[in-house]
């Protein structure tokens, strides 16, 4: 403390310190205004009956009790979200790892392939959704056109309650693998060569090298991909909003979409805020479980 006051008494250092604060002030202010304050105020709103029309009235835990114990739509959305996440994550890991192994080859023009696989990542979710809406179109979509060549279909990909969520999973996997491929690629290139040389000396087969060297070395990367994937899939919103509006029969209503419906459809901000915080606790809990049980120890 005394060193700080000594620091403060020195004019030059004081000015340096203030200049430093002046430079970080914009981003600190930005984070406070667009992040911290909204989060705290929505925590407050979750204990009120705020509807954007009349002033908020404190109702205690009523919203949480309603959502957790009397709200079948919330639990349906929770199940949908969990199912979506559980389908997307393993497929994403599998395909992005395969792609990373493929584009890790030293071939002429391999960067072109890397760029191509990465393209869906830099395309906006809404634009991707609009393209897939047409691909999935029952009557004139490319996918059904292709199936038609073999006398199959047409399938109503987004209009069939048992199928719509899987269709969205497929699109999400396609959109997400590019990103994870790059991370796996970085991981692959970071594996020390001597490990493979040692495996060669021991006469290990290709599969053995993968299962004993590559896969264990990639564990921290896989861990990162799973945690980040879990967080982002639990917050899935854009493609639902653009493609299915949560339907048919609520089969693609995720928790994030339910929050939107409640907040900006019914203007029930109290209820929507409560659902948001429950979602936060769920994601936080799942991330903790991940850290505790799956984080690589080294």
């Amino acid at each position: 403390m005394s060193s700080l006051s000594a620091y403060w008494r020195n004019r030059t250092r004081r000015e340096q310190m203030l200049t430093g604060y002046a430079f970080v002030a914009p981003i600190v202010l930005y984070t406070l205004v667009t992040g911290f304050i909204p989060v705290v105020s929505s925590l407050y709103l979750s204990f009120t009956n705020y509807n954007m029309m009349t002033p908020a009235r404190w109702i205690g835990l009523q919203n949480y009790v309603q959502v957790l114990f009397h709200d079948s739509l919330f639990w349906r959305a929770m199940l949908n979200t969990a199912q979506y996440s559980l389908e997307v994550l393993p497929l994403n890991v599998l395909f992005s790892l395969c792609l990373a192994l493929l584009v890790n080859q030293k071939l002429r023009g391999i960067t072109i392939f890397r760029t191509l696989y990465y393209l869906p990542v830099v395309t906006s979710s809404i634009a991707v959704s609009m393209i897939w809406l047409w691909l999935y179109n029952k009557n004139s979509g490319l996918i059904n056109l292709f199936l038609g060549l073999f006398g199959l279909g047409p399938v109503d990909w987004l209009g069939t309650p048992g199928l719509a969520l899987h269709s969205l999973v497929l699109m999400r996997v396609w959109k997400g693998i590019g990103w994870n491929m790059v991370i796996y690629l970085a991981g692959l290139q970071g594996i020390p060569k001597y490990l493979y040389e040692a495996a060669d000396i021991d006469g290990a087969s290709g599969w053995k090298k993968f299962s004993q060297v590559t896969w264990p070395s990639l564990r921290p990367v896989t861990y990162y991909i799973v945690v980040m994937g879990l967080i982002s899939t639990f917050q899935t919103f854009a493609e639902i909003y653009a493609m299915t509006n949560g339907g048919p029969l609520g089969s693609t209503t995720t928790v994030a979409y339910l929050i939107y419906q409640r907040a900006f459809g019914a203007f029930d901000m109290g209820n929507a805020s409560a659902v948001s915080f429950i979602l936060f606790v769920v994601i936080f809990g799942l991330s903790l479980v991940n850290v505790k049980y799956f984080q690589p120890q080294d």
């Binding site: 029952k138 009557n139 987004l158 048919p248």
Partner: peptide, 19 residues
């Protein structure tokens, strides 16, 4: 009638595309 959503083709509505 079925439960699928008819999009037509581009801006052309489904009644004009025989759907």
């Amino acid at each position: 009638a079925d439960t699928s959503i008819n999009l037509g083709q581009g801006n052309v509505p489904p009644i004009a595309t025989n759907q």
